[in-house]
Design a protein around this nucleic acid. Sequence first.
DNA 1: ACTATGTCCTGCGAGC
DNA 2: TGCTCGCAGGACATAG
Length: 270
Amino acid sequence: MPELPEVETIARGLAKRISGDVIESVWLGSKPEPLKSPAAEIAIALQAKRISTVRRAGKHIVFDLESARGAIASSQWIVHLGMTGSLLVCAPGLELEKHTHAVLQLASGRELRFVDPRRFGRLSVIENFEAPGAEPLQIAFDDFGALFHRRKTPIKSALLNQNLLSGVGNIYADEALFRARIRPRRRASSLTHDEFHRLYNALKRVLREAIRLGGSSVSDYVDADGEEGFFQLKHRVYGREGKLCRVCKTPIKRIVIAGRSSHYCPRCQK
DNA sequence: ACTATGTCCTGCGAGC
DNA sequence: TGCTCGCAGGACATAG
């Protein structure tokens, strides 16, 4: 469900609310595990650890942990929300929502819960985690171009490849391509220097604006405070098949690229 | 090495 | 009202 702006919003909300809190105990649902690391390993790694910070890396939420006694322990709890995962901070004893897979009891008395109906989300404990791809908001233009300009795959697929850029998903790929006036099926290698430049800038702008508005709430996304985002009001192509382009009034088209629905304006995008 | 396709899950809305 | 179908913001394994 969440892409970079949504994950950023969630991570900021969590950082604000639970930084400094200590994990007293851990419950992990059994079942087909949404776990990347073994359950016992995760439970042990989280137990009695202090959450020093919460931040985003690509689409991952990173909890930096340290020993509750202040000793250095550079392990990190990594949460990937998949499509439908959410992290909730709530009062203890509140009835467990269906599809709750993890509950952390915090020293402050609250609980941090991981809920994920579709179970595409993943939990793991790693040391020195790094997302494989580059951060779209950090990368320099030259590196951005170098990442893509030899690839024969559609530019849309390349944008979704997390090993290249980390954090771009289906909504923001479509929205950035519209703003850059580039069709999603274009081979990445066919883009001109000017087009790469437009795409680079469009992607940064769209991600920054989405973060400012708290992300896109298109189905059930809410941030750590239970608040919805507002960027869906700014979508120009995503989810607008058949509706009129906000720029030229041509109906927006929907096609499938690499199994993902892709939206574009046949007149504005070349 | 790079690229396209299928699969993992549950829930929801559209259409009949 | 109740059923089936198609679709969903992600990422991986597998096949070509």
